[in-house]
């Protein structure tokens, strides 16, 4: 399976994602340049962390206008798997692929820390290999990761089982402890924590691997049929 890793000029966890899916997971990957408007036939897309275009304005506010995001939207509309991590989550929200907003952390400071996530649903192509309630130890590293949405949206997310991860000990003030959510079609996931930085025992945790493995598991049957 081939992952596409989107590279904005200010992406900085592209390397981490690329390394996790290739060296650790043994899949192939290709860089998708922000100025291109094609996803080059990849099987799944990851929007990595970083500071897309500097993000001196609102995080992801400029990225949503980039050519590659047009292609990502089409890919998602066709049912392709899109995973947005950290800045990638912010961009998905700005682009309207996911509801709500990510605002400054409650403490107004950047936080880099290992946190515990509770897996709230396994009914998704990103968690199908996890078990419900499974606790994942993965790091966060963000200044604007406080998830915010109006009450109706939050209720809807919960009613439709679209909250995939919650913080066990909320670090940033996210409403209802939300760390990651799905779109209605369940093929787009945005989350603030960094599963790509927890994929080997050497890193202190390999709990993040299950997300990428789930993606492979979700796509492999289709890929087999296509072949």
């Amino acid at each position: 399976m081939k992952f596409g890793v989107v590279l904005f000029p200010g992406s900085n966890r592209d390397h981490d994602v690329f390394d996790a899916v290739t060296r650790v997971l043994g899949q192939s990957a290709e860089i998708l340049w922000h100025g291109d408007n094609s996803v080059k036939g990849v099987d799944a897309i990851v929007l990595p962390g970083g500071f897309s275009y500097g993000d001196y304005l609102r995080c992801g506010a400029i990225a949503k206008f980039s050519p590659i995001m047009g292609a990502v939207k089409r890919f998602a509309a066709d049912g392709g798997l899109v995973l947005g991590i950290c800045n990638g989550f912010q961009i998905l929200v700005e682009s309207g692929l996911l509801p709500g907003a990510l605002i400054r952390n409650r403490g107004l400071k950047f936080i880099c820390r290992e946190v515990e996530l509770r897996t709230e649903t396994v009914n998704s192509p990103f968690t199908n290999l996890a078990s419900k309630g499974q606790i994942l130890r993965v790091p966060i590293a963000h200044g604007e990761g406080c998830y915010y949405a109006d009450q109706r949206t939050l209720d809807e997310l919960e009613a439709e089982d679209r909250v995939v991860f919650r913080y066990v000990d909320n670090p940033n003030g996210s409403l209802r402890d939300i760390a990651g959510i799905l779109n209605r079609e369940r093929n787009v996931l945005g989350l603030m924590p960094h599963p790509e930085d927890a994929v080997e025992p050497l890193m202190g945790s390999s709990d993040g691997l299950v997300i990428f493995q789930s993606m492979v598991s979700a796509r492999l049957p289709e890929l087999a049929i296509a072949k």
């Binding site: 390397h15 950047f110 590293a141 050497l202 890193m203």
Partner: peptide, 14 residues
């Protein structure tokens, strides 16, 4: 102090 720093990016920090 150090929680304000991203000490993990590039996934090499042992």
């Amino acid at each position: 102090i150090w929680e304000q720093y991203d000490y993990l990016v590039r996934s090499n920090t042992l």
